[in-house]
């Protein structure tokens, strides 16, 4: 849960100053920063960005009485305005998931090399402790 939240928060901060694809960098950083299975890292990256974009689009749509959501539904030939919010989340989620997975795979290569020298890198220990606490 924490990794999902962290992905979302960092992505949001990045997006405030950088173009939309900076969400990929956020997910990537979480992916490389934590020891997880590939599947889990994809899932966390996916859910982080999916959650961020879905909630934002949903919040905006409530504020906007679904006017834009309904127009976008016509634009993308979707049967309901809510689906455009879901599609928005899905697109963000896919980018987040694959970026996180890329980070995760890179981490694996880096740490396999490190594993020959030391058993467990210090930085990794710290982070996994944080994770246990949360």
């Amino acid at each position: 849960m924490m990794k999902i939240l962290l992905t979302a928060v960092i992505a949001l901060l990045f997006q405030l100053v950088l173009p939309w694809w900076s969400v990929a960098v956020a997910a990537f950083l979480i992916g490389i920063g934590f020891n997880q299975t590939g599947f889990k890292s994809f899932l966390n990256g996916f859910l982080g960005i999916f959650g961020l974009w879905t909630l934002l689009a949903l919040g905006i749509s409530v504020f906007n009485s679904m006017i834009l959501a309904e127009r976008l539904a016509v634009l993308f030939t979707l049967p309901h305005g809510l689906l455009t919010i879901l599609v928005t989340g899905l697109i963000g989620g896919l980018v987040g998931g694959f970026s996180a997975l890329t980070g995760n795979r890179l981490r694996e290569i880096m740490f396999k090399k490190n594993d020959i020298v030391v058993e467990e890198p210090a930085s990794f220990k710290e982070i996994s402790e944080v994770e246990r606490i949360s």
Binding site: W20, W53, L56, T88
Partner: peptide, 9 residues
């Protein structure tokens, strides 16, 4: 579609 500076904005 990104909600920060895309159409949703």
């Amino acid at each position: 579609l990104n909600p920060i500076d895309g159409a949703w904005r």
